[in-house]
Amino acid sequence: MPVPNDPSLYEEVLVSPMYLAGSSGAGDAGFAPVAHWPHHYLDEGPCQLVVTSPDRRVQIGWFGDDFELWKISAAKEAVAAPRWTATFNHVTPPEIVAGLTTALARDYADADAYEGNGRFLANPSVYWADAVRPLTDAGWTRDGGAERGTVEIVAPDGHAGVLIDNRLSGWDDETVTLWAGPPGWGTRAEAVFTARTPSHLIAATAAVMAESAPVVRERHQIDRRMEHLVTLAPVAQAVTVAPTAEPSVSRAPTPLDVRRTGVTQAVQRAARAPRTAADLRVMAAQSRSTGAAQFRSGTLAPAAAARPSANSSTSRRSR
């Protein structure tokens, strides 16, 4: 059993499947696609950072001390009520959040093509399957044991899925829940979308969950209850060298190399390469440029340190 001063606790490892990797300790990957948007740091209240689109119709809130760590919404006007809302809890890998933020950044950039409103305000598809097609295309299958009026699609390993509630009673109801991991405050990742969330945004988030590429974590960031469900590989042993005309000596990546690559790959997968790799690396680097320990100077509070507030409770949707 590792001891608190054991250096191996801080060894960087590749974790797969990604959806069981938990938090990386910072939200860099989730904020990287919108690093060029305005950042608003708050001194009071549970929300510590809000990143908004230039016109403030899209808002991405970071709640560093709450169970629901991320709250993302979009509205027709900056002062209007949200048309839809998505929340991600403190166990959700930020690479999954990047699936949504990348799609939002792309939709906002293309807003003029949609008469100024932006595709991020589009009506959801009338077919529930459109929102989860990346999962079914990847071999996730329907669970026949779901309650009447709901549909559940489950990963081949049974440790992740999506629950769709078709018993619609209001536009602000939470109708789609992406989940991963066994029930529990430190083990169950959840991403929840309200009824009017555009289907393509849910699909962009689900597409990242369907990816099999591992992500980088330090060993201590893996909950002990999850260790038997994931595969860990030391980063130094996972170096792949492309064949060349002449023999060459491979160099193990530094931790910084791995982090940069991991963030860039997460954004590229979610966005399906809407920008060049160089642009994405610049955006990722900008979001981390002032150091992970300086929240007020431009970085994020560690997600790993997030704890429920006094009136917080376990997940409303724990299974």
Rank of each mutant, 00 (worst) to 15 (best):
E68T: 04
W62F: 07
E68D: 11
T92P: 08
A86V: 10
F63W: 02
A80F: 05
S73W: 02
W62A: 07
A75Y: 09
F88Y: 12
I60N: 04
V58F: 07
R83Y: 12
T87L: 01
K76T: 13
D66G: 06
R83T: 13
T87H: 02
V79S: 11
G61Q: 11
D65N: 07
K76M: 12
V58N: 07
Q59H: 15
P82I: 02
G64D: 10
K76Q: 14
T87R: 06
S73A: 01
N89W: 07
A80E: 09
G61I: 02
A74G: 03
D65Q: 03
V79I: 08
W70K: 03
V58C: 15
I60S: 07
E77I: 01
W84S: 07
I60K: 06
T92H: 05
F63S: 04
G64S: 15
A78T: 13
E68I: 00
A86C: 10
F63T: 02
L69F: 00
T92K: 06
L69V: 00
T92G: 05
A86E: 10
A78P: 05
G64L: 03
W70S: 03
G64R: 04
T85I: 15
E68G: 09
T87M: 02
T92R: 06
A80R: 04
V79K: 01
V79W: 12
L69S: 01
V58Q: 08
D66E: 01
A80S: 11
E77D: 06
A75L: 08
T85V: 14
Q59F: 12
K71W: 02
T87A: 11
A86Q: 11
V58T: 06
G61W: 08
W84Q: 13
F67C: 10
F67Q: 14
Q59C: 14
V79L: 13
K71L: 02
H90D: 12
H90M: 04
I60A: 09
T87C: 15
H90F: 15
S73C: 04
V79G: 00
F67K: 05
E77T: 07
A74V: 04
A74M: 02
F63P: 06
F63M: 08
D66V: 00
E77C: 09
T92Q: 03
G61C: 07
Q59D: 15
V58E: 08
W84N: 12
L69G: 00
H90S: 06
F67E: 15
V58W: 09
D66A: 01
K76A: 04
A86P: 11
G61F: 06
V58P: 14
D65Y: 11
W62V: 05
A75V: 02
L69A: 01
A86D: 10
K76F: 04
Q59P: 15
W62L: 08
A78D: 13
W84R: 05
D66W: 00
L69D: 00
R83Q: 11
W70F: 08
L69W: 02
N89A: 02
A81Y: 08
A74S: 05
K76R: 14
I60T: 04
D65L: 08
I72H: 03
T92F: 09
H90Y: 13
T85Q: 15
T87W: 01
